[in-house]
Structure formats: C-alpha cells, structure tokens
C-alpha cells in the first residue's frame, strides 16, 4: 500500500478470532490487518461464513479477539474492559445492524430507544438537550421527529426503522460507523436511499464508514476502498476500481465472474454444465 500521510483512524494488526479448541477450532477471523482513514468508506465483502460479521463484532468490542490488536487513533483498544472503558470507545465507534426489527426492543418507542442511546455519553443531560440531539439526528436521516418519536418499531416501514437505527448511531456523534449489511433486509428501491444517506454522512461529517456487504454492486457504489474476505482471511484489498476491475486473487475473480449482472455481459452460458465443488 502507498504511504498514508494521515494517521489512520482505525487499524487492526493480525486480528484473529478462533471458536472452539484443538482439532475443532474454527478460524472465523484469521490474521486480519487493515487501516481505515478518517472520512473514508471502506467495504468488506465476502460470502456468508467468510467472517465479515465476526470481524464487525470484534471491531465493536462485542466479542474479544483471540489474537492481534485493534488501534483507534493509534491507541490499543483491545484491552478495554468493563462498561466504563467500553462506553468511551462506543462514543467514537457506532454500529448499524442488518435487521432493524431485531435490533430494537419492540416494547420501546423510538423516543426511548434514541434517548437510551445517549446514555453511552455517560453524562447527565437535560431533557431539552437530549431532544435537540435526537431531533438533529432524525433530520440528518430524513425523518420527521413528530412522525416517528412516539411510535413503536412495528409501526414503521423497514426503510424507516433502518433510518431510526442510523439516527440512533448518530446521536452520539461517532467518528466511525460500522454498518453490517444495513440494506440486505430492504427492497432495491429503498436500498439506494440508505446508501445515499451513508454517502451524505461522509460528506457532511467526514465520518469514516466500514460497510459490510455481500453485494459487490453496493460496495462499488458507496466505497473508496474494498477488502475481500474469504474463509476468515483478508485475501485482497485496495481501491474499488482496482480490486473489482482487475481482481488478483482467485476468489475475487470467481466472485466477479459469478455475480449476476443486469446490464452487459449477457446471460450466463447455459452450456457450462454445473459442476460440484464438493459432494
């Protein structure tokens, strides 16, 4: 990689996570090293089981690594323990998950969800200040506070709940947003609006975004750089055009060849009889 003038916001060094022991050990994340610069959107792509979500959970410190380090602004955060230290970390690193309905308590109104998110700041805040922050965050994601605050998640559409989830992350003003498949539960027409929102957030706040997806088209659309994961390993990384336009690793090449395209290339050759990689 070229020398970066800026200090990275986030860096991992040989980050690993094993599940199980001895012969049964599964290397879900295996010696993964990469950097995220301030204001950069980085996509992590890979098929199901490649370790994308485990990596996200490690970076969010929801799961302890079994090897390697995570650095935020050059400081090792792998050793942070306990609610107090981790809260401080979560002020800077926030997440958006795949299924918004599963992420929210169905018995809480959106006002309560967003209010609770502010607890991570660890300071007493006047109700007016709280509401101010919540209103700004909702405006940021294009929602009308009066329309959503007193509602429960089931009263909103999938796209709206996903926006509330993004607003929930924004209320604390994070520097890094980890978005784990934020669009995979949404329809194509709504998907684009969420992707645009992520791009806008980067423009407005110079926020870094780690965008985890299995969809190469989405990765191409939003991100500056792309990391390709395969069986827990980082097999390729670089600028999007370079990685997807001229893939070097065999797995990335296969991925690009197998992804269905709407325009161009035409149909897959029916003559190529399906072959089984295993039995």
């Amino acid at each position: 990689m070229t020398a970066q003038a800026q200090a990275p916001l986030l860096e991992t060094q040989g980050l690993s996570r094993e599940f199980g022991h001895g012969q049964n050990a599964v290397h879900a994340v295996d010696q993964v090293s990469f950097r995220v610069q301030p204001g950069e959107i980085v996509a992590i792509v890979g098929e199901s089981g490649s370790g994308k979500t485990t990596l996200a959970r490690l970076l969010l410190r929801l799961l302890d690594p079994t090897g390697g380090r995570i650095l935020l602004h050059g400081q090792d955060v792998t050793a942070l323990r306990g609610n107090r230290q981790l809260r401080e970390y979560w002020r800077k690193v926030q997440a958006v998950f795949q299924d918004p309905y599963a992420a929210f308590n169905p018995f809480y109104t959106n006002r309560r969800v967003l209010g609770n998110a502010l607890n991570v700041l660890g300071q007493k805040m006047a109700d007016g200040d709280k509401l101010g922050r919540i209103t700004r965050a909702l405006a940021e994601v294009g929602l009308e506070p009066g329309e959503v605050l007193e509602k429960w998640p089931h009263q909103l559409s999938g796209g709206q709940v996903q926006r509330v989830m993004i607003a929930r992350a924004l209320v604390v003003g994070p520097e890094l947003l980890i978005a784990d498949e934020p669009t995979s539960m949404l329809d194509a027409s709504l998907r684009v609006t969420i992707l645009n929102l992520l791009k806008d957030l980067r423009e407005r706040h110079a926020m870094s975004i780690l965008f985890i997806t299995h969809d190469l088209g989405q990765a191409y659309y939003v991100s500056d750089r792309i990391l390709v994961m395969y069986r827990g390993k980082l097999v390729e990384q670089g600028p999007v055009e370079q990685v997807l336009g001229n893939p070097q690793h065999e797995y990335t090449q296969r991925l690009m060849a197998d992804v269905p395209l709407l325009r161009g290339r035409g149909g897959w050759a029916a003559a190529a009889a399906p072959t089984a990689p295993e039995g």
Partner: peptide, 26 residues
Amino acid sequence: QALISSTLDPDPRVRQCRLEGIQGAP
C-alpha cells in the same frame, strides 16, 4: 424504470452517478 435504475451492478459506471431510488414505501 425506477426499479431498473436503482439496481447496482458492480461496474465503474455506477460510481459516476447518483441513483435516486423511489421515495415513500409500498
């Protein structure tokens, strides 16, 4: 038309333009 134009192919061309999607919900 909206459905087709909000489909993202991994193609350099999709990076050039900003897609709009469809406002509202079904």
